[in-house]
Write a protein that binds this DNA or RNA. Structure first.
Length: 1107
RNA sequence: GCGGGAGUAGCUCAGCUGGUUAGAGCGCACGCCUGAUAAGCGUGAGGUCGGCAGUUCAAGUCUGCCCUUCCGCACCA
């Protein structure tokens, strides 16, 4: 009857092979998306805007595993928000400027580290190659992006090298300029001296550039000028009975490892928190840190050790003037550089301009004398200090590392040390000259020591806006939260000015035109403005070097030329909220272009990149928007950890441990790789990637989902249930309503997780549900699916089957929707196959569907709790059977159960059929929670009693241990208060304040865990033994069917050649055996010519397919 | 050196505002189950929750110091 229908018509649903071919399924979905323009349709649909920014990758590198991570997350939330009815513009973007591009071209040309600005032609060619090189791997990127299922509009991306983009960036710089936030100032950069080339961090290399070398370690006397002695010092000395006048020749002992910088000295720095001493030394009275006294004594072991005369606080030494060893230098140079005092450096007015003691936290007494020599043009921290004190800059070398002062003039800086040391010795200024073995950086290409050197640079004055940056950061939701006040927050607090210029070639040219005498700078805010200045139409001019450098103009009788530097690429990427729409504003703030799109897409609701962007993109976005828009550029940000190999090592080409993403997609499917990314660890934590773990992720969710889907289709195609006519939920069995309640919970939990940008929490809820679905619901209800409820009363069986199909169908379709943002391929496979049976109007793709909303009315919390008790008891029961070697197929007469609470135990009674079937027992009996077979132990309910009894808890424990457990158990059962006592102290307790645990009854196969208890009556009757054997037989026949490759709906003729008990069991349970195994008829004795046969305990079975 | 993260079973990781006997998955051994599932279930071995102090009736959880490791920033007189 049913069989005939089934074979006569095409299957309702896709026939799902047992072995999933995810690669093929995903290819099919990709094809469908493309054909039906599914992504495009989400872009065309209306809805409130959820703003997402694509952090631009550099297209000239290969897409790698960390891009899978980032892009999985970048895809997840926009897909989710789209299903919630938002419109999410997903404009792609490419970072195209900067050093990586330059280096790749240099490598190709074999011109590493060369100066490409040598000639106009060379630069033109170089930049042309850079522009091309940007797109060398674009095909790989396009394929990779599609294959991962990352929906982003690559047809209309923003590209940072386009004229429009550059012009917008100029416009932003101009707006900063107009606010007085752009300035030229010195910056200490690492220089490869002989070739006078500024090195980037990449070129400086990681560890290789630091080498162990012997350098001078010199202690120099800087005699103080008595008339400048600070009052605090005078007072302190007087207080300690030391007469300043008696300290003839009193000198600071200053330490340095770079004697060649001494001519450039402008300050001596002490730590304000340290204690300094005035001490008698072999070279007269000296000032050093107290903690350095012994070290200095040891330097001259043959002479008397230092004798401390007085102690001084470091902070009191400030502004004490001294005589530096090369006072003439300043005169000779006429003092290069202006005062760089900040407006807040008030003290600078009355104090000497240089050669005095300054206070600096970075000074320690761990090495040297505790007094640091400061030559600010040769150190970043020193330059910072110099700014604070407003001292002039004194250059003792040129930018090729040649000395420009003293008798060492013309010498390479490192070679000047010797002469200077000798000179100072001769002049009696050298307290001690030794050597130190330490690490110093070298340029690996030239072999020269690095020269840290102050060069003019362009800055955005972010440091003075630090407070604002911190304030605006408060409005950002960081995932993980610690980044907000940790890595990012700390970085903002200690913010230094943003050096935006680079002495490079391929980048956004700085739009600064400088008068030839350096007296004036014009910041150009648009091409039109530049055209006006230049007096010719520059529309269409390539805004890159060298073309833009050709543009000069005259103003006030002076010729203006563009400064040579290009812009830091981070400024490029941080400009994307504006430049991706070619936002342009007039100097008066009037929007000229891009305003509408910009308004709609600012700020971002969500961005996501890896943690290395805290000082990169996350910062540049934040800095620019805080300075110009007075608000953050993004509201939520996920900051991902890095991916390392399975041993925790960084993946690198040289180590050969790089995992390519594409083979992973092919082997496991993009869905499984994505699922791994979402669930493997907290997003901010580092991930140890291994293929094995992708396989685990696959088994954890993807396979389970797929298998349940396959199960549904297998039987639905046989039974052809009418899913449009499902029984009302209230009419369905408890287990169906349980599943649907769990489904509601899952909707709620997945939604909550995603709303909090907690992908892992959401994924876990989904994983838990599919596990319940597969390993409890489907397994428990298998019979309701096969043979359409043919057993039992016909109509009742059919209704029951319909309920099961409807329930499972709904669960699968809903899981598909919930999973859609995570595993977009499989979700669409399942959805497209199943959803439209019940709703012909349903959208074609799951990604066009509305998000499933939690419906409290369908959530029966009590039922979930009760079923949970059943699950626990069944698990426990199975454990007991295992422990006592009670085969599951052997029916047992009775199980005694009790759950941890009275309510749960009552629920076990209501759901006893589930338990009986699952544990294969004839009867389920609720164990009276306080039955006499059971003994008890008492535990205090600590969260309850801890609050009220506090320190008395140990005594209470003792009281419970000594109490009459049976009496307490009775009281608790009856809800009565009771009293226990110890050491004369009475505790009057409520039933809630104590936990009563049952002990496994003696003589029964039993186990107890967490208050749940299960005990089996193991008395076997002859009938039970035979039934067990019959079930073994069924199982054996099924196994034979399966091994013979029979279809699940094939009817068979069955012959059994058995003896002994097995034969008797077969005869007794003949109906069960034939109905369970779809046997038309059953004969006994050996049979010939059957298709399948196999040995079983007690004989042999023969099978023949019929029909 | 400074800042941040991490340290829980052989591996990958959970463990909420302190609370009862610290868990899951994988792997291993043994067993069970299986007519959807290359799945599933159970038992066992395997833990000084990185270490030491402290706070508390009670610490994997809070505080301090230290160790290891990863990341970032420095490398400095």
């Amino acid at each position: 009857m049913r069989d005939d229908q089934a074979t006569a018509t095409a299957p309702l649903f896709r026939e799902v092979p047992t072995q999933p071919d995810y690669r093929a399924l995903e290819a099919e979905i990709l094809d469908f998306w493309k054909r039906e323009r599914v992504f495009e349709r989400t872009q065309e649909r209306d809805g409130p805007e959820f703003v997402f920014y694509e952090g631009p990758p550099t297209a000239n590198g290969q897409p790698a595993l960390h891009h899978v991570l980032a892009r999985s997350f970048k895809d997840l939330f926009p897909r989710y928000k789209t299903m919630r009815g938002y419109h999410v513009t997903r404009k792609g973007g490419w970072d195209t400027h900067g050093l990586p591009v330059e280096i790749s071209v240099e490598k190709k040309l074999g011109l590493l580290g060369r100066n490409h600005g040598a000639s106009r032609e060379e630069l033109e060619e170089f930049n042309r190659l850079c522009r091309e090189s940007v797109w060398t791997t674009i095909q790989d990127w396009n394929y990779f992006t599609e294959r991962l299922g990352y929906w982003v509009d690559l047809g209309d991306p923003y590209v940072t090298y386009t004229n429009d983009y550059i012009e917008s960036v100029w416009n932003l710089l101009r707006r900063l300029w107009d606010r007085g936030l752009v300035e030229r100032d010195y910056k200490v950069v690492p220089l490869s001296p002989r070739i006078s080339t500024t090195l980037s961090k990449a070129e400086l290399g990681e560890e290789d550039s630091y080498q162990w070398v012997d350098d001078p370690s010199v202690y120099v006397r800087f005699p103080v000028k008595p008339e400048t002695t600070p009052d605090a010092v005078r007072a302190a000395l007087t207080g300690q009975g030391v007469d300043l006048a008696s300290l003839d020749g009193l000198a600071l002992v200053v330490w340095t490892t770079t004697p060649w910088t001494l001519p450039s000295n402008t300050m001596a720095a002490v730590n304000p928190e340290l204690t300094y001493v005035v001490a008698r030394s072999p070279m007269g009275p000296v000032i050093v840190a107290e903690d350095a006294v012994e070290r200095l004594s040891a330097l001259r072991p043959k002479e008397a050790p230092l004798e401390v005369l007085a102690r001084l606080r470091g902070r009191d030494l400030e502004f004490w003037g001294y005589q530096q060893p090369y006072p003439d230098v300043v005169k000779d140079l006429g003092v290069e550089g202006r005062s760089t005092a900040h407006s807040d450096g008030e003290d600078a007015g009355s104090a000497p301009r240089m050669h005095f003691v300054a206070l600096a936290d970075f000074v320690t007494a761990d090495d040297g004398s505790g007094v640091a020599h400061e030559a600010p043009v040769y150190g970043a921290e020193d330059l910072e200090l110099s700014r604070r004190y407003g001292t002039p800059l004194v250059f003792g070398t040129d930018d090729h590392g040649r000395m420009t002062v003293t008798h060492e003039k013309g010498q390479f800086f490192k070679d000047a040390d010797k002469g200077l040391i000798r000179d100072m010795k001769d002049r009696g200024l050298m307290y001690h000259a030794g050597t130190i073995h330490h690490r110093y950086p070298f340029h690996d290409r030239t072999g020269d020591p690095i020269l840290y050197f102050a060069k003019p640079s362009w800055y955005v004055r972010t440091a003075r806006m630090s407070g604002r940056l911190v304030e605006e950061n408060e409005k950002i939701n960081w995932v993980p939260a610690n980044i907000k006040h940790g890595r990012f927050g700390k970085w903002l607090e200690g913010n230094v000015d943003w050096a935006i210029s680079r002495e490079r070639y391929w980048g956004t040219p700085l739009p600064f035109w400088m008068a030839e005498d350096g007296s004036d700078v014009v910041c150009v805010g648009s091409v039109r403005e530049l055209s006006e200045l230049a007096g010719r139409d520059l529309e269409g001019l390539d805004l890159h070097r060298p073309y833009v450098d050709d543009v000069t103009f005259e103003r006030g009788g002076k010729v203006y030329r563009r400064v040579p530097e290009v812009l830091d690429v981070w400024f490029d990427s941080g400009s994307m909220p504006y430049a991706q729409w070619h936002l342009m504003q007039d100097p008066d703030g009037e929007v000229v272009s891009g305003g509408e799109q910009f308004q709609k897409h600012f700020p971002a609701d969500f961005i996501c990149e890896a943690i290395d962007q805290t000082r990169g993109w996350f910062y540049s976005l934040h800095a620019i928007s805080t300075l110009l828009m007075d608000q953050p550029a993004y509201r939520n940000v996920i900051c991902l950890g890095h991916i390392v190999d399975e041993h925790g090592k960084k993946m690198s080409k040289s180590k050969g441990n790089v995992v390519q993403p594409l083979p992973m997609f092919d082997r496991y499917g993009a869905d499984s790789v994505r699922w791994y990314m979402f669930t493997a660890s907290e997003p901010g934590d580092q991930k140890r990637f291994s293929e094995r773990l992708v396989g685990e992720a696959q088994r954890g969710f993807v396979n389970t989902f797929y298998n349940v889907y396959g199960f549904f289709n297998l039987y639905a195609n046989i039974d052809r249930p009418d899913l449009t006519n499902a029984p009302a939920v209230s009419e369905r069995p408890e287990i169906d309503r349980w599943l649907l309640s769990r489904l509601e919970e899952t909707k709620r939990d997945v939604t909550d997780g995603l709303e909090r940008y907690d992908a892992r929490r959401a994924a876990r809820a989904l994983e838990r549900f599919t596990d319940d679905l597969s390993n409890w619901y489907v397994r428990r209800n298998r019979r309701r699916f096969w043979r359409g409820g043919a057993s039992g009363a016909e109509s009742a069986g059919r209704a029951d089957s319909a309920a099961a199909y409807a329930t499972l169908h709904e669960a699968l379709v809903t899981v598909a929707k919930l999973a859609a943002p995570f595993t977009p391929f499989l979700a669409d496979v399942v959805y497209r196959d199943l959803a439209r049976v019940t709703d012909p109007q349903a959208p074609e793709s799951v990604h066009l569907c509305a998000w499933p909303e939690f419906d409290p009315a369908r959530h029966d919390e009590r039922l979930v709790r009760e079923m949970d008790a059943v699950l626990r008891v069944v698990d426990l029961g199975r454990a007991v059977r295992g422990q006592h070697n009670l085969r599951a197929r052997q029916p047992l007469p009775k199980v005694l159960v009790r759950a941890r609470t009275a309510d749960d135990t009552a629920a076990l009674g209501r759901l006893r059929d589930q338990i009986a079937e699952e544990l294969n027992v004839k009867d389920v009996e609720l164990l009276d929670p306080y039955a006499s077979v059971v003994s008890y132990t008492l535990r205090p309910n600590l969260p309850v009693v801890g609050r009220t009894y506090g320190k008395q808890v140990p005594l209470l424990k003792q009281a419970l241990a000594e109490a009459d457990t049976a009496a307490v158990a009775r009281a608790v059962r009856d809800g009565q208060n009771f009293t226990v006592s110890a050491e004369g102290h009475d505790f009057h307790l409520t039933p809630e304040s104590v936990l009563v645990d049952a002990r496994s009854p003696q003589g029964l196969a039993a186990a107890e865990e967490g208050g749940d208890l299960v005990a089996f009556d193991t008395t076997l009757t002859r009938d039970l033994v035979l039934e067990g054997l019959a079930r073994d037989l069924v199982r054996a026949v099924q196994d034979t069917r399966k091994k013979a490759g029979f279809d699940v709906s094939d009817r068979v003729r069955l012959a059994l050649d058995l003896h002994g008990d097995t034969l008797e069991a077969a005869r007794a349970w003949q109906d069960l055996i034939t109905s369970e195994t779809l046997a038309h008829d059953l004969s006994y004795g050996p049979a010939d010519g059957y298709e399948a046969e196999s040995d079983v305990e007690g004989g042999r079975v023969y099978l023949h397919r019929v029909g």
